[in-house]
Design a protein around this nucleic acid. Sequence first.
DNA 1: CGTCGGGTTGAACCTAGTCAAAGATAGTGG
DNA 2: CCACTATCTTTGACTAGGTTCAACCCGACG
Lengths: 235, 235
Amino acid sequence: MDADVLPAHRRACSRRRLVRGESLCTAGDSFRALHVVSSGALKCFVTSHNGAVQITGFQIAGDIVGLDGIDTGLHQSGAVALVDAEVFVLPFAQCKQWSQESAYGQHLLMRTLALESIRSQRHMLALGMLRADQRMALFLLDFSLRYERLGLSRTKFVLGMPRQDIGSYLGLTLETVSRLLSRLQREGMLQVQGRSIDLLDFPALRRLAGLLTEHRCTALDPIVDGMGRLAVTPR
Amino acid sequence: MDADVLPAHRRACSRRRLVRGESLCTAGDSFRALHVVSSGALKCFVTSHNGAVQITGFQIAGDIVGLDGIDTGLHQSGAVALVDAEVFVLPFAQCKQWSQESAYGQHLLMRTLALESIRSQRHMLALGMLRADQRMALFLLDFSLRYERLGLSRTKFVLGMPRQDIGSYLGLTLETVSRLLSRLQREGMLQVQGRSIDLLDFPALRRLAGLLTEHRCTALDPIVDGMGRLAVTPR
DNA sequence: CGTCGGGTTGAACCTAGTCAAAGATAGTGG
DNA sequence: CCACTATCTTTGACTAGGTTCAACCCGACG
């Protein structure tokens, strides 16, 4: 196929590089595009009236940023790079077109949106009814699973964010996070060295988190391929 | 227009009546349709592995139930009627068709999905960084606003759910909920009689919740009209 | 070498949870 | 219509898990 006969949504999209600490968007910015992380890591956060911030999520390769802008056309949360990162830029108009022209695209976009709210709900559940140590275990297992999906080690990984951010995400103080990591290390469940984590005892961590079964939440097909092209056929 | 030339998504959809305590769907059910509450009230909840339940939301007239099934095709949460209720049944295939044929439909469906995840995020923020009394105040103000939008009193209303459910929603125990209501009454912010609430001091409640401004989160156009027909033009 | 952001650890305090008992309410059946 | 029961609600006393405040440590960087 010739490049210029391809519908807009089939062309590879542009990319954007972010250096550590650089912000991708800020709450209140007008929403034009979705972003898919291709490398590095971001954090998303909302700011409350009094100025306090709460981290709402951490995104690594394959994760989507910016869905919060769809509703009002303004971003509801900010996103900044935890480490140097690169993202694909998917103009939202293009996504809409894609969704109208391809039944699979429509399906995928809706699933992506729905999944986002399920993730929030699951996290809500964690914040609402788990003890601090259980939240921490869940957090670590979640990261482990996500790194594994990227083909990386599920036992050894580096958390790109400071204790403060982990605390904010889990509804805890940074001191509690620090104490918990120390305690879990003392109890032999993991090894921690600054931001480097080495999970040693998965069964124990799962038991702590209250997971009976290996909690594999559905992995959604990515909406873009490695080159940043919107998917048009399954898998 | 003749009824039989209307596209499927323009025909009034069916309804379903639920008696108090009856369940609309259960986690694991296969997902076929979205539901829009037309009267009464529902609660949605997720069940964790160990059997504990957490309420994820309360739906009153105009609210949508069932978005959680879109991702996997299976409902992730259950929904039961708090009081006798009626819902419109929107077969999901029909929604998809509507979304493909009408740009406005596509827009509205996406906004609805996105709004859902923003709501979850906002609630996450509340669970993660607010004290119990602040969560309670926010909860009451939210209900007040929603009743007001339905043209009902924003000061006097009846909470259809037991303390236990409020607690579960807010990440608190039923005793704490009870104590908080008693305390807020003692402090003159409201009057409580069983499940009947009368908000007396909005400024104080807002101050408590940490809301500087009157927190009016965007009201999304309803996706169905009063007869259960999918909207095709704004407003 | 000093400073600065991030991390660890300790002690005191406090919020919300737990356990327990009694009071209200609503629903049921005689 | 009333009595009985089940459920919901309130309140108290006690406890524990997390926060707060504060000191100290470590490594990076000018």
